[in-house]
C-alpha cells in the first residue's frame, strides 16, 4: 500500500497523471496545495473515482473550496502523519 502525495496542480505538472499510471487499487492519493484544484474538474473527478482520495483540509480552507469539495475526505496534518504509517511508503510525485 502506497500513499501517493501530489502537491502541484494537474494543470502545471504531470505528477497526477504519472501517479495514476502506476497506482494499485489498494493505494491512496493525498492531494495538497494546488493539487486540490483538480477536484473541481469533471474530467479529473471521473479519472480519480474509485480511488481512495484524501485532501489536506487546510489547503482546501485556504482556497475557499470547502463547500465545493465537500464530497471528498478532508484530513488534518495529524491524519497525514498517521497515514504515512498505515501505508508502506509515501511517494511524493
Amino acid at each position: 500500500m502506497i500513499l501517493h502525495h501530489i502537491q502541484v496542480s494537474a494543470a502545471q505538472s504531470a505528477a497526477l497523471k504519472l501517479c495514476l499510471r502506476y497506482i494499485n487499487s489498494t493505494d491512496s492519493i493525498l492531494l495538497s496545495s494546488n493539487a486540490v484544484n483538480c477536484l473541481l474538474n469533471k474530467e479529473w473527478q471521473s479519472r480519480l473515482s474509485g480511488y481512495n482520495i484524501l485532501v489536506l483540509e487546510d489547503d482546501v480552507i485556504a482556497r475557499g473550496l470547502q463547500s465545493r469539495l465537500s464530497a471528498f475526505k478532508m484530513i488534518s496534518y495529524a491524519d497525514f502523519v498517521a497515514l504515512t504509517l498505515t501505508h508502506n511508503k509515501v511517494i511524493s510525485w
Binding site: 494546488n34 489536506l56 496534518y77 497525514f80
Partner: peptide, 15 residues
C-alpha cells in the same frame, strides 16, 4: 507552498 507543508507535517509528527 511545499516547504510550508513540510514544516506543518514535521510539527504534527513531533507533536
Amino acid at each position: 507552498a511545499s516547504s510550508y507543508n513540510a514544516y506543518r507535517f514535521t510539527e504534527a509528527a513531533v507533536q
